[in-house]
């Protein structure tokens, strides 16, 4: 057991170190991509906590992502808040929204849960459009560079942006690692594997799933807030169904229920689309075909398959 713990920490710290080094080695175009991927990976990690570990297949996470993004952006845009409190508000908004949705949606399960979360997210998206005088509607709004300074550091500049994304990513990944190796992480997995059995071990399924969903919402919220802040744009696109599908795709690709899977999936999917758009504009097809192929031939994803083929210790 001790040896494995060492291996696990070494692997994850090595990933962080490699990502730190990458900014010096990669051309700027790829470094910026990587910053994007790291923030999206935080979103996908949150999705993975609900779907991969607890078995909650949601189609409405864009609501939590957008809640975080708008809770960060609107106070800056309308009330001239500073970025740090705005970012914290984004984090909280994701969690609160997930809690509110969970209180209702977790009364259902399976297919009903998917549709209920989808409907809530759709209502959220439409609300953003409906309140367009406040939210900027379809067009969204730009977060001005002047409002993206933290203590004199300009988050719009390449290096600080990369480091901020890496910092968030590292915190998210280590937090996730700690969570899934904690006793509560074990209970989340137990819920996924067999809810009735877990109930008869004294765990309240509703409570466990609600907590997992709120944690998942916190990840989505802070990712949405960071995405808006680092890349300077807040828009209703991020609340559409596509942004609920993307983290699911990343997680399925990288491996549901693995700590590094969401990052790996985001990386692979991002570049798959990027490369495909080099010779075709059919990126929708790439997404669709990837979804179908994964669910048909590799439902465990990259790391899930590796774990099955020998790397049993992979968390």
């Amino acid at each position: 057991m001790k040896g494995e713990t060492g291996k696990i920490w070494t692997l994850h710290l090595a990933v962080i170190a490699a990502l730190f080094a990458a900014q010096f080695l990669l051309p700027q175009y790829h470094a910026t991509n990587l910053a994007r991927i790291m923030v999206l990976a935080v979103y996908a990690m949150g999705y993975n906590i609900a779907f991969g570990y607890t078995g909650l297949l949601s189609l409405g996470h864009a609501l939590f992502f957008a809640a975080g993004m708008y809770a960060m952006g609107l106070p800056i845009w309308q009330l001239e808040w500073l970025p740090v409190p705005a970012l914290i508000l984004g984090l909280v908004a994701g969690g609160v929204m997930a809690g509110a949705v969970g209180l209702l949606a977790l009364r259902t399960a399976g297919v009903s849960f998917m549709i209920v979360t989808l409907m809530f997210a759709q209502a959220g998206y439409l609300t953003l459009l409906y309140l367009n005088t406040w939210t900027g509607g379809d067009e969204g709004f730009v977060v001005e560079r002047a409002y993206r300074m933290i203590g004199g550091v300009d988050l719009a500049a390449d290096t600080p942006r990369y480091l901020a994304a890496l910092g968030l990513f590292s915190a998210g990944m280590l937090g996730c690692l700690w969570l899934v190796r904690s006793p509560f992480g074990r209970v989340m997995v137990a819920m996924r594997e067999n809810e009735e059995r877990s109930r008869m071990l004294g765990f309240n399924p509703f409570r466990v799933k609600l907590i997992a969903l709120v944690i998942s919402g916190l990840y989505a919220g802070v990712a949405g807030a960071a995405y808006g802040l680092l890349f300077g744009y807040v828009g209703a696109t991020f609340a559409t169904i596509q942004y609920s599908i993307l983290p699911m795709l990343y997680v399925l690709m990288g491996g549901a229920g693995t700590v590094l899977g969401p990052f790996l999936g985001a990386l692979a999917m991002f570049y798959l689309i990027d490369i495909a758009s080099g010779f075709t504009d059919a990126w929708l097809f790439v997404v669709g075909a990837a979804l179908v192929a994964l669910i048909l031939f590799a439902p465990k994803g990259i790391l899930g398959t590796l774990r099955e083929r020998g790397l049993k210790w992979l968390p």
Binding site: I245, V287, G288, L296
Partner: peptide, 12 residues
């Protein structure tokens, strides 16, 4: 999940 994929493929 598969019909979501199908949705994208048909749209494309």
């Amino acid at each position: 999940v598969a019909t979501i994929g199908l949705l994208y493929i048909l749209q494309q």
